[in-house]
């Protein structure tokens, strides 16, 4: 079980780090084993930053991340290596994840060297092939090739196969679908959903609501680093309370229905109200323009469904 408790991240800005740019503010949620949790947000919401902090690729500014009771942020050296045995990640751009100078096998041999040194060549080969077949790949099709010789879908599956070689309990999937074609998306998505049966907990980070709705049990809606609504997927999508969630659901283009007219929002008109600004500029401005808006409190509107308190009340 992975728990985030009031997690916050500020980036240093300005010369010698004089300014602070808040990217994530007091986010709390959990990832339970055997379930998919979607972290939904638009660009600049901080969702990737959260994923990177969980994977220890970025340092935490304040708040805690605990995995089975152990504080993740303080792990070092051998303890960190053990953590990676349990928690792994898959990223958005499959082509960027592979060192172009080497063949794709390198991602496996790196693991072999670091974690499976004691295993003989034969045993390793068996284990590797089993992992590849578990994600629906034929070893002879993919091993020994360079990244540019394979498709995006195959590369993403290879990354999942890599993660499965270790006995992971949590997988962080950061926008893994967005660079794939529509016909391959669903296969990778089904693959991730299938991991639930193995007891894995998956954090599915995305900006696409329909994908989140398809595979997750829990959903967290994030905007500008703050959680606005979270809970069981069916409840968040079926009974959205926050005006931002409602706006998102109304603006998602659907195959069998047209956009509903947007509810007129307090303040400026039209979709501009929720349009995310270029994060760097918006945040830089905020550091000089006074204190940022306070983090709203989360209120439980029904069992398993929390909403951030809005001025003027939920619409």
């Amino acid at each position: 079980m992975l728990n985030l408790e009031k997690l916050s991240k500020s980036f240093r800005g300005g010369s010698f780090g004089s300014g602070a740019i808040p990217a994530v503010r007091q986010v709390s949620f959990s990832i339970a084993p055997g379930e998919v949790t979607s972290l939904i947000g638009e660009s600049g919401s901080g969702k990737s930053t959260i994923g990177k902090m969980i994977l220890r690729l970025l340092p935490v500014t304040s708040g805690t991340i605990t995995f089975d009771g152990v504080d993740v942020a303080s792990l070092k050296g051998a303890a960190l290596k053990e953590y990676y045995r349990k928690v792994q990640g898959v990223f958005q751009d499959p082509f960027s994840c592979y060192n172009p100078v080497f063949r794709v096998d390198r991602i496996f041999t790196m693991l072999e060297r670091e974690y499976f040194g004691g295993l003989g060549a034969r045993e390793w080969s068996v284990k590797l092939h089993a992992s590849l077949e578990a994600v629906g790949l034929n070893p002879t099709d993919v091993l020994g090739k360079f990244a540019h010789e394979l498709s995006g879908g195959q590369l993403q599956r290879l990354l999942v196969a890599r993660a499965l070689l270790l006995d992971i309990e949590i997988l962080v999937a950061d926008e893994v679908i967005s660079m794939l074609d529509a016909s391959t998306r669903i296969d990778v998505l089904n693959l991730l959903a299938g991991l639930k049966a193995r007891g894995l907990g998956v954090l599915f980070i995305t900006h696409d609501l329909s994908l989140g709705h398809y595979i997750s049990e829990h959903t967290v809606i994030l905007r500008r680093g703050v959680v606005l609504e979270m809970g069981e997927t069916a409840k968040v999508f079926g009974n959205p309370q926050h005006s931002y969630t409602k706006m998102l659901l109304a603006s998602v283009p659907r195959l069998h229905s047209h956009w509903e007219p947007l509810e007129p929002a307090a303040g400026s008109a039209g979709p501009d109200r929720f349009e995310p600004r270029r994060p760097a500029v918006a945040r830089a401005r905020r550091t000089h323009a006074g204190p940022p808006e306070p983090v709203p409190l989360l209120v439980e509107v029904e069992q398993g469904h929390l909403v951030a308190f809005e001025q003027g009340g939920p619409g």
Binding site: L57, G89, P100, V101
Partner: peptide
């Protein structure tokens, strides 16, 4: 800042090894 370096970190590879093994070959 490329993802393959992040992946190497996630594989428990130490920094010097990442520089020599992943970064330098791309600049060979």
């Amino acid at each position: 800042s490329r993802d393959f370096v992040g992946l190497a970190r996630l594989s428990g590879v130490r920094s010097w090894r990442i520089v020599v093994g992943e970064v330098a070959p791309n600049m060979s």
